[in-house]
């Protein structure tokens, strides 16, 4: 009886794990199956031509470049804030400080705020500042979204660092600031992991850029021009009644999925490198 129950539940558990794996495969397979026929070199090398949204010539280079611009800008901003903050809570504040747990707690909460709320807040902020939907607006809003992601994952990795390195540096007579600069070298793979995770989240999110970045068929050449993004390009093309355009949405979805897959696997590679590198 005992053994039977054991067996039954084991089978159920294996099934549920298999189903989850199956769903992942199913999602990726669906996107590839529907998108591959429409995926041509033009898709990633050309801007939308005239009549693109009626099924004519062109590609989504505008969205790819726009997404890259936005992610680079927002990464720069969020790194500028995340790295010092993580160093501060780990090496400046004492181990059991109330302040550091307060910061970590707010990071947890910021992490949980939905991207649509960031989008709405970002847009309200832009109205307040007199900025219209543009590359700049997109960068700022996406930076808000990915900042807590980056901080949390970088913090998690930094916490694993043993006290030996900081102590060694301090005993050489280094100031805290000099110490942190060296520690950052040691943490580099961890920082790369955090960055890749943040890129993954930032590049795929549509709700943040929906109001803030606008949309355009061109590549923006200044911060106050609107910028297209990959997820929005998928969304808009999908809304088209023309079948060719819809198919191109699926092809764009492949592009996005492949980007995410690459990011995810390289993040894994770097984090495994970090754990090998003695913690």
């Amino acid at each position: 009886m005992k053994q039977l129950e054991e067996k039954i539940f084991k089978i159920i558990m294996i099934c549920s794990a298999m189903i989850i794996l199956g769903v992942l495969v199913y999602i990726i397979a669906t996107v590839f199956y529907r998108g591959l026929p429409a995926l041509t070199l033009d898709m990633i090398t050309k801007l939308p031509g005239g009549g693109f949204y009626l099924g004519k010539e062109g590609g989504v280079l505008n969205a790819i470049v726009g997404s890259i611009y936005i992610i680079i800008g927002s990464l720069a901003i969020s790194m500028f804030i995340s790295v010092p903050l993580v160093m501060y809570i780990n090496f400046y504040l004492p181990a059991k400080s109330v302040f550091s747990s307060l910061i970590r707690f707010s990071l947890d909460i910021l992490f949980g705020i939905p991207s649509i709320v960031y989008g709405a807040f970002g847009f309200a902020l832009m109205i307040f500042l007199g900025v219209r939907a543009s590359l700049l607006g997109g960068i700022l809003t996406v930076a808000m979204l990915i900042m807590p992601i980056m901080m949390r994952s970088f913090d998690e990795i930094t916490r694993l660092l043993s006290r030996e390195l900081p102590d060694a540096l301090l005993s050489l007579g280094a100031t805290k600031y000099e110490m942190v600069k060296v520690i950052l070298r040691q943490l580099m793979p961890g920082l790369v992991t955090a960055i890749l995770l943040a890129i993954g989240r930032g590049i795929g999110d549509a709700a943040t850029v929906l109001f803030t970045a606008g949309y355009t068929d061109n590549i923006p050449n200044s911060l106050n021009q609107p910028a297209a993004t990959l997820p929005l390009s998928i969304f808009f093309q999908l809304g088209s009644p023309v079948e060719e355009v819809q198919n191109r949405a699926y092809a764009s979805a492949i592009i996005l999925t492949v980007i995410i897959l690459i990011l995810s696997f390289s993040a894994r590679y770097f984090s495994s490198k970090f754990s090998k590198n003695k913690i």
Binding site: I20, V23, L24, Y26, I27, T30, V31, L197, G200, R201, I203, G204, D205, A206, A207, P231, I234, F235, L238, A249, Y250, A253, L256, T257, I260, L261, L263, S264, A267, R268
Partner: peptide, 15 residues
């Protein structure tokens, strides 16, 4: 699990 959490909402929507 990582991949599932990394897939963008829009892809889930498409699927």
């Amino acid at each position: 699990v990582d991949l599932l959490s990394g897939i963008p909402p829009i892809i889930y929507g498409v699927w």
